[in-house]
Every structure is written in structure tokens, then in C-alpha cells.
Design a protein around this nucleic acid. Structure first.
Length: 449
RNA sequence: UCCUCGGUAGCUCAAUGGUAGAGCAUUCGACUGUUAAUCGACAGGUUGCUGGUUCGAGUCCAGCCCGGGGAGCCA
């Protein structure tokens, strides 16, 4: 008899099958047992009746603990009470390994994420982590497909780099023979070299930030997808970001219905993703925020009142803060592009607009409190302007002379953006902590397991 | 770095300055349709650490350690 998986069981109604997997949970009585069997593709109930199986089989089914590894044989039957429409009437059970002290309880799926992360190597077997990580897998595949279908070349950037790409963020130092190297915080500058070679490239890999952020939106190690395109200007960059987000979210909605349902995700806002994203100039965003600040201040809702106090906290003309992003997400109820930020709050490589006051940059803010999931823009392509910016931002010239070369040898308008995979998955799955969206999260206090 | 909250059984939490408790989990027992099954029983503790106040500290005070989520920064 060939082994089958739970995911395909409804093709075997009224047939004898063999399943290999683990005991997820058990209920039952002295004469009738209900084994919740899981094999990674799904969970099915195996009914074991004392009078229908050998005595030692029933005894084993009664005795083995959660996460014992087992082989089950039985007949598949339709059952309306089953969440997957079928159950298995067990005829035989072989125990590969009997377990009696599995450290995670079924009901522990929610309460204390930090304690469960200590057991992450086992917790990934549970329903909620499984569903989230399945969505992550689909999101990553959708990203790869999106760029592949559009003729982008996958262009891997190095992880070990000579110095900061942006000159400001805190980087992880790595001893490198006689020197000090750093873990990359962005592949973008390397992506620009690829755009000049291939036209359209996408960098996709892990990224590291040593900032001591302790929030549900931050990791010290995360994955970022960074397309970079020659001859693409700000409007085109916004088009690309919008299309990519729509593609990824729609793919998850199509192919992860079961997982999103398991996560009890209300997908109504996700389904709005296909509408065009509002594109709001920074100055306009400031006006909207001033109005929201006033409106929320008069609200009866305590949380809105508190939010009102934090809106535009950094002052007019400054960068937007977390409260500003939350408020904008609530206002537009879908992804929104904020563009033309003040030049001084953005990185040295950003190209300014014709007024010289604003940068040709764009952030995409996701709704539902997730905040910024994309940051990008058009790059400075003029040699003299770039050199002036490098000097102004105190970037060590010798560390990026190779980058400056791109403006000496056939410089063209170009740009791109970076999207954080985990924040995207966080939005799609609606999970509270970004650390749930990666198998083994790395945060300021966690390098284990 | 700053602000803020917290640390009591394996987990989630309770206990007016006066004998450290409950639910869940584990273990044992009962039950032929359970959906986080239910019911019964046993067991489970250096109350984060150090010192102080007190007849008496889980509780009050001081210092320290550890952690959470928020700001900043960012994806």
C-alpha cells in the first residue's frame, strides 16, 4: 500500500490508505479513540474503535503521547463533522517513536510568544505557525514569479560588505581576516550596478540591522526584495511597487485560502489591494495628517485620542513617524504611496525634484497598523550632484568609489525600491508580531534556537 | 539610548503586610462520536537576585539582573 498525504485524502473516499506522520492530539473514551493525525499537509481525525482493531493496536493508540511519530492504516470515509470533509477509520497503527513529554500544549498557540519562541524548533509544528510560514513560502514564490515573468534578472548582492551603504545605520561588524567588514543592510547600491548591466534586476536576500529596536515590527535579520531598473523614474517606480504588491497579495488570497481561514484573517481590506493605490505628495500628506489630528482629538475613542497626540509629533516638514503611518493607513484603508519627502530626511543617493526641496522618493504604507512595507525612489544620476551629497553626508569616499563610477560611465535615470518580506507577510496574515513571519527570528535578545 | 509595563507551579494567572492558590498541561483512573472533549484523583514552589523596614514580606523601600512593547531609526 502506498502512503498518501492528508491533503489528498478526499480522492481516496472508501479506500484503504496508509498515512505517515505525527499524533497532534487525542480525545476519546475507553473504547473509542479520536486521534488527531498530522503529516505537515494537514490534520485528519483517525477513529480507532476497540472492537475493530487488534488489542495491542488499541492499547498503543491509547498510550502514545502528543507528537509520537506513527504510521496509520485505515479506510477513508466522508464525514460532515470533519473540517476537511473526511476522516479515517483506523485498522492498524505502527509507532515509530513513542513520546510522552512534548513540551508544547495545543492551547499554547496564543498566550506567550516569547516562551514559545524558545521552543521555535518544535512550535513550527503547530497550526498557527504552520499557516503563517506557509503564507510566507507562497509570498516568496510570488515575488520570484512576478520578477521572472517581467524579465528581471536575479542579481545577488554580497552579504559581507566593506562599509555602510547609507552611512548612518548601525551595522553588525564581522572580523574579516586583518580587517573589519559589515553585514549588509541593503543590496541596493549593488543592484544599481546590475541595472546598468542588465536593465532590470532584482536583489533578493537577507539584510541585517543592528539597531536596538524592540518592537513588533522589527527584526535584526530580515529578507528584502530590491528591484532596480534603468530608465525608470518616480512614477514608474510607484507603478512597479503597486503591481508587485497587488500580485503578491492576490496570489496569497488565491492559494492560501485554507491558511488565512485557519488564522481567522478578515481579508476584506486585503481584497481592496487591486484598486489603484492613492499617491499622495508629502505636502498633501501633511495636510491630511493635520486634519486627522484634529478629528481624532475630538473622538470619544481613547485610542484615537492618544493617536492624535502622536500625529506629526516630529513637527511639520519633518519625517513621518509611526503614528503618522498608522493614521494614514486608517484614513485610506488600503496601501498608500507617500512621495516627495523633504530631501534632508532621505539618504544621500536620492535624486531631488526640480525645486531641490524634495526627494524623488516613495514609501508605501500598508493599512491595519503595519506601516511602511516599501521604501524607494529615483537615484541621483548626476556625478557632481552625487559627489556633493556624499561629502555632505560624510560618507567615506574610498568605500563607494565603485558606486560613483556608475555616474562616470553611461549614467542614466534609474531607480527601485526595497520591500520587507516579513512586514508584507505580517500584513497578509494579520499576525501581531513580525517575528512570527520567519522560521527563526533574530531580534536584539534572541539568537537561539 | 530614552519612556513604560512586568518577573509567583511546565503554561496562563490570583493572593488587604498574617498558613502560596486556581485553571490548563503532565501522571493515574472513568467514559462508544469527541472537536482546545468531559469527569475524578495524585503530584507539582528557593514568589528573578541582594539588602533593608517589620513580631511577620510574594506584598512596602533601595539597588541590581532579566524580559515585554513603544519612541527614535528603518523594511
Amino acid at each position: 500500500m502506498n502512503s498518501v498525504t492528508v491533503s489528498t485524502l478526499n480522492q481516496y473516499v472508501d479506500q484503504e490508505v496508509e498515512l505517515k506522520g505525527w499524533l497532534y492530539n487525542r480525545r476519546g473514551s475507553g473504547k473509542l479513540l479520536f486521534l488527531q493525525f498530522r503529516d505537515g499537509t494537514g490534520i485528519v481525525q483517525v477513529v480507532v474503535s476497540k472492537k475493530e482493531v487488534a488489542e495491542e493496536v488499541f492499547e498503543a493508540a491509547r498510550r502514545i503521547g502528543i507528537e509520537s511519530s506513527i504510521t496509520v492504516r485505515g479506510k477513508v470515509s466522508k464525514d460532515d463533522r470533519s473540517p476537511i470533509g473526511v476522516e479515517v477509520h483506523g485498522s492498524d497503527l505502527q509507532v515509530m517513536q513513542e513520546v510522552h513529554d512534548y513540551p508544547i500544549q495545543i492551547s499554547e498557540d496564543v498566550p506567550n510568544i516569547d516562551k514559545l519562541l524558545d521552543q521555535r524548533h518544535l512550535w513550527v509544528r503547530s497550526r498557527v505557525p504552520r499557516a503563517i510560514l506557509k503564507v510566507r513560502s507562497e509570498v516568496v514564490q510570488a515575488i520570484r514569479d512576478f520578477y521572472y515573468e517581467r524579465g528581471f534578472v536575479l542579481y545577488d548582492a554580497p552579504i559581507i560588505t566593506p562599509a555602510s551603504c547609507e552611512g548612518v545605520s548601525t551595522l553588525f561588524e564581522v572580523p574579516y581576516f586583518e580587517e573589519t567588514a559589515y553585514l549588509t543592510q541593503s543590496g541596493q547600491l549593488y543592484g544599481e550596478t546590475g541595472a546598468m548591466a542588465f536593465g532590470k534586476v532584482v536583489v533578493f536576500g537577507p539584510t541585517f540591522r543592528a539597531e536596538k529596536s524592540k518592537t513588533r515590527r522589527h527584526l535584526t535579520e530580515f529578507w528584502m526584495v530590491e528591484p532596480e531598473v534603468a530608465f525608470l523614474e518616480l512614477d514608474g517606480i510607484m507603478d512597479l511597487a503597486e503591481q508587485q504588491i497587488q500580485y503578491v497579495v492576490n496570489r496569497a488570497l488565491e492559494r492560501c485560502k485554507f491558511e488565512l481561514n485557519e488564522l481567522e484573517r478578515d481579508t476584506s481590506i486585503l481584497e481592496q489591494v487591486s484598486k489603484p493605490f492613492p499617491r499622495v505628495h508629502y505636502e498633501e500628506a501633511q495636510k491630511v495628517l493635520q486634519k486627522l489630528k484634529a478629528d481624532f482629538a475630538e473622538s470619544d475613542d481613547e485610542e484615537l485620542k492618544k493617536l492624535s497626540g502622536d500625529i506629526l509629533k516630529q513637527g511639520l516638514g519633518a519625517d513621518l513617524g509611526a503614528a503618522d503611518e498608522t493614521a494614514l493607513g486608517m484614513h485610506y484603508k488600503q496601501c498608500v504611496c507617500i512621495h516627495h519627502y523633504p530631501r534632508e530626511v532621505k539618504a544621500f543617493y536620492m535624486k531631488p525634484d526640480e525645486t531641490g526641496k524634495y526627494a524623488l522618493g516613495v514609501d508605501v504604507i500598508a493599512p491595519e497598523g503595519v506601516g511602511e512595507i516599501v521604501g524607494g525612489g529615483q537615484r541621483e544620476d548626476d556625478l557632481a550632484a552625487l559627489e556633493a551629497q556624499i561629502k555632505k553626508h560624510n560618507v567615506p569616499p574610498e568605500s563607494i568609489d565603485w558606486y560613483v563610477d556608475l555616474r562616470k560611465y553611461g549614467s542614466v535615470p534609474h531607480g527601485g525600491f526595497g520591500m520587507g518580506v516579513e512586514r508584507c507577510v505580517q500584513w497578509i496574515t494579520g499576525c501581531r508580531h513580525v517575528r512570527e513571519t520567519i522560521p527563526f527570528p533574530r531580534t536584539i535578545n534572541r539568537t537561539k534556537p
